[in-house]
Each structure stands twice: as C-alpha cells, then as structure tokens.
Design a protein around this nucleic acid. Structure first.
Length: 127
DNA sequence: CTGATGACGGTGC
DNA sequence: GGCACCGCCATCA
C-alpha cells in the first residue's frame, strides 16, 4: 500500500466535528515526522470520500494555500460541522482535536493509535 | 542531476 | 503571541 493511500485511509477515519493535525495523520499512518507528506498528499487528493477539511496544522489553524479560496472553503465546511474558530481564526484542539483512530481498527489494519486523553472539565460535544 | 518549492512541525528567542 | 531556523521529503523545472 502506498504512503498516499495510507494517508487517505487515516483521514477517512476522522469523524465529523473533529480535526486532526498533519503530524497526527502522519503518525497514525506509520510515517512519523512526515507531516509535509500529508499536506502534499491532500493537495493532490481528488477522492470524494476523503474529508480533507478536517486536517489542520499543529497550531489549530487552517494552513494557507496558493489559492486562498480553498482556505475559506475549509473553514466554512468545518463551521458547518460544528467546529468553532476563535476570533484569531484558531480551533481549540483540546475540544475539537481528534483523539486517534479506533484501536480495534488500528490493530486490524496495522495503523498506530494515538490514545490522547480528554482533558477533564472540557465537555466533549461530539463523541 | 540539482536546486527550489511546499495544505508541516519542533525548538529557540 | 510572533518569527526565524532547520529537518523533513515528494515533485518538478
């Protein structure tokens, strides 16, 4: 399986109303420290069932594009899923960040779980 | 082949 | 918070 195909498979696991970082996607796909590759793969992605809008950078911001129209589009799509942006255009990853794939699924398909804990006191609106 | 270019990220100031 | 490096690596001119 190509690196690209693995990346798309991981992105397809991110649920509605959640966002993952490029680095997290790389890690789950078994490609540590290759966040740039994830960005490259998504830029070239033409598959309809890959929710590319749910991947943002580690600062919780929508990454810039050569074509700024797609940046706006990504934000609109996420807001429609219930993801909130701060005034400065940031997403609170404690609230909306993906906690990793279902461990069951990860084990079966040889991906890496993340096991990120929910922060106590932060209501989880989407699980 | 070589150098430049990114939907990146960690570190340091 | 911002900014500058630097490591990263597939693609492309």
């Amino acid at each position: 399986m190509s690196a690209r195909a693995r990346i798309y498979a991981v992105v397809r696991r991110i649920p509605r109303g959640r966002v993952a970082t490029y680095g997290q996607v790389a890690l789950v796909a078994g490609l540590p420290r290759r966040a740039r590759l994830v960005g490259y793969a998504l830029a070239a992605c033409e598959e309809e069932d890959v929710p590319w809008q749910r991947v943002v950078n580690a600062q919780g911001r929508v990454s810039g594009r050569s074509e700024p129209l797609f940046t706006d589009r990504q934000r609109v799509l996420l807001e429609q899923e219930g993801v909130a942006f701060s005034r400065s255009g940031r997403i609170d990853l404690e609230r909306f960040g993906w906690r990793g794939p279902d461990p069951e699924w990860a084990k079966e398909h040889d991906y890496h779980p993340l096991n990120i804990e929910e922060k106590p006191g932060q209501p989880n609106l989407f699980d």
